[in-house]
């Protein structure tokens, strides 16, 4: 997936996450701010990376502000941010691009 612009998905509500994708640079860089970083920071990063890799996004900075989102929420936010950044606005894989 080719990202064309910066895009964002999510909110700062409890149990949600706000994911911003900024295309460019070298490889996937993940920046995490999380209320559960000590216990889940490693898993949040792995989830974001895996989702981006499976979408075929390679050069991107992902900024995650996490308010205790479950993994399914986080994946959905990363996916929708990626589709927005790629300017894809139809034919969504409802139910999740990543199974």
């Amino acid at each position: 997936m080719q990202l064309r612009k910066s895009a964002m998905s999510g909110t700062l509500e409890s149990s949600d996450a706000m994911v911003t994708l900024e295309p460019g640079g070298e490889g996937i860089r993940v920046e995490i701010t999380s209320i559960v970083k000590a216990q889940y920071g490693r898993q949040i990063e792995a989830c974001v990376r895996e989702t981006l890799e499976r979408l075929g996004v390679d050069n991107v900075k992902a900024i995650v502000v996490d308010k205790g989102a479950l993994e399914c929420t986080l994946k959905a936010r990363v996916e929708s941010a990626a589709f927005r950044a790629a300017e894809i606005d139809s034919g969504f894989p409802w139910g999740g691009a990543i199974k």
Partner: peptide, 10 residues
């Protein structure tokens, strides 16, 4: 099963 297994605190 809902939240994952937490890592130990530092």
């Amino acid at each position: 099963s809902i939240v994952g297994t937490p890592d130990p605190l530092p």
